[in-house]
């Protein structure tokens, strides 16, 4: 069982200190939610975990099964089983979603994969996410609506099957129907043993995805952790109410 451990993580971007000592532990098969107000450092944490070159780690460790991954490029982290569902997925013109999925799937499986099996699996995943087959013939994220982009991220997650997935605001920009579908997709993957680290601004998605652990990030630090009830509390009291109360 893979374990992602974040120890006293300090990080900055463009010289600005954003993370100020984050401690967290996420195991495969667990479902965590990280909540926090705007500007608390949620997205920074996701980029730092995946190794975006613009973000500088100043102190602390990120351990995957005890091995410090700081300094590894994003592809190496992906090969260790990490995945980042982007808040703003990037467009790659001319590369079809299907081709992209096949290439990355093959890469993460060290080239040992059959195209026939892949196709079959892909069809199943599309069905689960209620996506039309023609969707994967479109160019990666190009001209996708906000909701389509998020669904495509969850599709990638379900095809690539990492050990631990950091999902950055997967719920933002989704209408209620899409939110339900995406949520049930995430629930299914969590049941299948993927560790989910769900980063969200709103409590809304937690009506559909039930995290076992909820953490609150404020000003670059996890100020409180608890179980599902903490999310409810936030809904009632707001972030300030929790910090001050």
């Amino acid at each position: 069982m893979t374990e992602l451990e974040i120890r006293n993580l300090h990080a900055s971007v463009n010289g600005k200190k954003i993370l100020k000592g984050v401690n967290l532990k996420i195991r495969q098969g667990e479902l965590h939610a990280l909540m926090g107000p705007n500007g608390s450092g949620k997205s920074t944490l996701s980029y730092v975990l995946m190794g975006h070159p613009k973000y500088v780690v100043e102190q602390g460790e990120i351990l995957v099964d005890g091995e410090n991954i700081i300094g590894l490029t994003a592809d190496k982290r992906a090969k260790l089983g990490l995945f980042l569902g982007f808040q703003y997925p990037v467009e790659v013109p001319g590369v079809t979603l299907k081709n992209f999925l096949w290439r990355t799937y093959k890469t993460l499986n060290n080239g040992n994969s059959s195209f026939v099996d892949f196709n079959e699996m892909l069809s199943e995943k599309l069905e689960v996410l209620k996506m039309d087959k023609s969707f994967i013939t479109r160019y990666l994220n190009e001209g996708f609506s906000g909701g389509e982009k998020k669904r495509a991220e969850v599709l990638q997650l379900s095809v690539l099957k990492p050990k631990i997935a950091i999902m950055d605001e997967t719920d933002s920009g989704l209408d209620v129907d899409s939110l339900k579908i995406v949520s049930s997709g995430i629930n299914k993957l969590a049941r299948e043993g993927i560790g989910i680290f769900l980063i969200t601004h709103y409590q809304r998605i937690l009506n559909y995805v039930k995290p076992e652990f909820v953490h609150i990030l404020i000003d670059g630090k996890v100020v409180k952790s608890g179980d599902y009830r903490l999310a409810k509390e936030i809904e009632e009291k707001g972030y300030e109410g929790i910090v001050n109360g």
């Binding site: 490029t73 592809d75 995945f83 990037v90 467009e91 290439r103 990355t104 890469t107 993460l108 990638q156």
Partner: peptide, 17 residues
């Protein structure tokens, strides 16, 4: 773009790939 590269690399592709 750096973000385009990071996105693709986060899926396991090396920088060259």
């Amino acid at each position: 773009g750096e973000d385009q590269l990071f996105y693709l690399m986060s899926r396991g592709l090396s920088e060259d790939e």
